[in-house]
Design a protein around this nucleic acid. Structure first.
Lengths: 201, 201
DNA sequence: GTCTATAGGTTGATAGAC
DNA sequence: GTCTATCAACCTATAGAC
């Protein structure tokens, strides 16, 4: 029964390797991180990694899959917590808040995923960009719903607007530090600016 | 007379190397780009690079200096073109527009600079982050002026607001392609959202 | 200024013992 | 499952000819 609730020892070792890899990839990127270093951080020798992963490339792709899936899951969970009855802009704000929470709290996976994209081999990169489109469509539908509901003025290019805001989100790890606002507060600032603008009235 | 208007042959070769390096660094990052490849793209052998630059690290730092200086110059130039009499939010929009124009038109230098930061050796990185603060202060003063003029509601965290918007800007190279809006149109979308928000009225 | 040749080091990956 | 040992490839940087 591989569907047992108990994770095997191999499963747990695999997770330990993935965490070590995410940490290294986040700090130094894909190419600068050596398997020796990742193995050491996971408490083993470099050669032993190959029992769990076929190649460095495959290990990186697993980290990126987890980072992307985690961000998406966080956004979807926050969205459903907001409820179907909330108005579309509020729902976008909720998704942003969940998304940003993941970016900050699971920064190793989330940031490694964002930073590795342009260093990984072609196959990994193109596959990952294809997977990213699922998240893109998720947000695309939220923005479309807001536009249909009349909450977004028609002069906005919906796709550009979405990417500008996701850019603001994805860039936060570059400057965010615990000393300031919480992820929720930060997401609230972004959502408030998006909806009403910074001007008074 | 090294201050002559004529650039020497050495100067022009140097520029050719820098362009080749910026292109490679943008596409593959710092670590994945080899000096052989950069030299080849500049029409010379790897060893010959060392006549012009002391090390790979130094070459990267030059590219990053140019990318940062270019972005700053573009923002400052657009700001002064807007004039001192323009209202503060309009001035911010003008700076964004110039900044974004540089990101798109000199993408090799601008994007290489953004992407290399977390791959370069410690010395290069810390020095570059110090240089970045000049641009941070530049925008910080523009936002402060807008706040003082009452154009930004007091509930906004000025620093977070600035970084969110600069994040939206810095992320554009990840998705921008010529098929859509011009840099000016895109900056206008961002500025309009910042000022009035997306909601009608 | 640019070339060739190469030193010296690190890397991803494999093979086989345990 | 993990270790040790090692290979082949690649890298940055240097030295010396031209």
């Amino acid at each position: 029964m591989t569907t047992s609730a108990q994770p095997s020892k191999s499963d747990r070792t695999r997770q330990r390797i993935l965490r070590a890899a995410a940490k290294a990839f986040r700090q130094q990127g894909y190419t600068s991180s050596s398997l020796r270093e990742i193995a050491d951080s996971a408490g083993m020798q470099a050669g032993s990694l190959y029992y769990h992963f076929g190649s460095k490339e495959e290990l990186a792709e697993c980290v990126m899959d987890m980072g992307l899936a985690g961000a998406r899951a966080a956004a979807e969970q926050a969205l459903s917590a907001a409820g179907e009855d909330a108005d579309p802009l509020t729902r976008i704000g909720a998704a942003f808040s969940g998304h940003l929470g993941y970016l900050v709290e699971e920064a190793d996976f989330a940031v490694a995923t964002l930073r590795m994209l342009h260093q990984t081999p072609d196959g990994v990169r193109t596959r990952h960009m294809r997977k990213q489109r699922v998240l893109g469509r998720f947000y695309g539908e939220l923005f479309e719903a807001a536009r249909v509901a009349g909450q977004i003025r028609p002069q906005f290019d919906l796709s550009a607007l979405r990417m500008l805001l996701l850019g603001a989100l994805n860039w936060t790890p570059e400057w965010y530090s615990d000393a300031g606002l919480s992820p929720e507060q930060l997401a609230a600032q972004l959502t408030d600016m998006m909806g009403r603008g910074v001007r008074p009235q």
